[in-house]
C-alpha cells in the first residue's frame, strides 16, 4: 500500500471497532493519533456523501495535507471501512491511485468477506470491538500484498 496508511472500521454508532496502522513507514504514536483524528473528521464528509451516491466505494473523499481518506460504506449495517493513505508516490499520483483503487476495491471486498464472517459469528455483538486476531492478520496480510 502506501508508506503511511491507517485502516479503520467504524461501526454505525461511529465507534471505531477495528484499527490498524498498515503503512510501511515507521510507526509513531503521534502520527497514529493524527491519522485517527483525520479519519474521525472525515466521517462528516462520509455521512453526507453516503446518501448522495449509490456507490459503496467512495474514493478520496477527504484529505488533510498529504493524507487521503477513502471509504467503503457497507450497505447492510452502515459500517464504514476507512483507509487513510498518502497520495505521494514516485510513479505519479494518478497511476498510483488507479492501482490503489483496484487493489483497494479488491481488498475491500475481501475485507468485506472477512467482515461478514465476523458479523455472522454468533458471539459477535454488532457494534462492539473486533478483537479477532485472525481478522487482524488477514488485514495486515492484505495490506502487505497491495504494497
Amino acid at each position: 500500500m502506501a508508506s503511511t496508511a491507517c485502516f479503520m472500521i467504524i461501526s454505525k454508532n461511529d465507534i471505531p471497532i477495528y484499527e490498524a496502522e498498515v503503512g510501511t513507514a515507521p510507526k509513531k504514536e503521534e502520527a497514529a493519533h493524527q491519522h485517527q483524528f483525520i479519519l474521525h473528521a472525515a466521517l462528516d464528509i462520509v455521512q453526507d456523501l453516503a446518501w448522495t451516491t449509490s456507490a459503496m466505494f467512495l474514493k478520496a473523499i477527504d484529505r488533510f495535507n498529504d493524507l487521503v481518506v477513502s471509504v467503503y460504506v457497507t450497505a447492510a449495517v452502515h459500517t464504514r471501512l476507512m483507509l487513510l493513505h498518502d497520495s505521494r508516490n514516485d510513479d505519479g499520483i494518478k497511476s498510483f491511485f488507479q492501482e490503489v483503487h483496484e487493489l483497494y476495491i479488491k481488498a475491500s471486498f475481501t475485507l468485506l468477506t472477512v467482515f461478514v464472517i465476523i458479523l455472522l459469528n454468533p458471539l459477535y455483538l454488532p457494534g462492539s470491538r473486533v478483537t479477532s486476531s485472525h481478522f487482524d492478520t488477514k488485514v495486515r496480510a492484505l495490506a502487505r500484498r497491495s504494497e
Binding site: N13, I15, P16, E19, A32, H33, Q36, F37, H40, G127
Partner: peptide
C-alpha cells in the same frame, strides 16, 4: 444506551 456511547472514539478522546 447505544446513543449514550455514540462516537466513543477513545484514542481521540484521550488525546
Amino acid at each position: 444506551v447505544v446513543s449514550l456511547f455514540e462516537s466513543q472514539w477513545s484514542t481521540l478522546q484521550m488525546v
